[in-house]
């Protein structure tokens, strides 16, 4: 089975690095890290991810705005985006069926199993 390509965008390198380590260790994912929000669009167009894990609060650009830019791109508009955020409480994510503003959310801190479950739900097969 082909490995799924995940782009992880977060201004904290430790988070992107540990997500990459953990996800790739499962043998099912290829993970590209992006710590500079403003370079996300370019990075995504190069990497061609199957799904983007996107932090919400980053310096320079807001995750929500970045998501609109990504969805506006002709080549990326079909790529699912999952927000990964410290700004929202777990209960809120749960009470909205994991969706806020129409997009799925993961509330930090989130463990690997939850991340994988979420990826499975939103990756296109």
């Amino acid at each position: 089975m082909e490995k799924r390509r995940i782009l992880v965008v977060d201004d904290e390198p430790s988070i992107t690095r540990l997500l990459k380590l953990n996800l790739e260790q499962t043998g099912h994912y290829v993970v590209e890290e992006q710590n500079v929000a403003t370079q996300t669009l370019a990075a995504a167009e190069t990497f061609r991810p199957d799904l983007i894990l996107l932090d919400v609060m980053m310096p320079g650009v807001d995750g929500g705005e970045l998501a609109s830019q990504l969805q506006a791109s002709h080549r990326l508009k079909r790529v699912p985006i999952v927000f990964l955020t410290a700004a929202v409480k777990k209960e809120e994510v749960a009470s909205h069926g994991g969706l806020i503003g129409g997009l799925p959310f993961l509330a930090k801190p989130v463990d690997l199993l939850e991340v994988i479950a979420c990826l499975n739900r939103h990756l296109k097969h």
């Binding site: 430790s14 988070i15 540990l18 953990n22 410290a86 930090k108 801190p109 989130v110 463990d111």
Partner: peptide, 10 residues
């Protein structure tokens, strides 16, 4: 929450 995320993943 960000450090917790790092610790948890670690």
């Amino acid at each position: 929450k960000n450090p917790l995320q790092i610790i948890l993943m670690g």
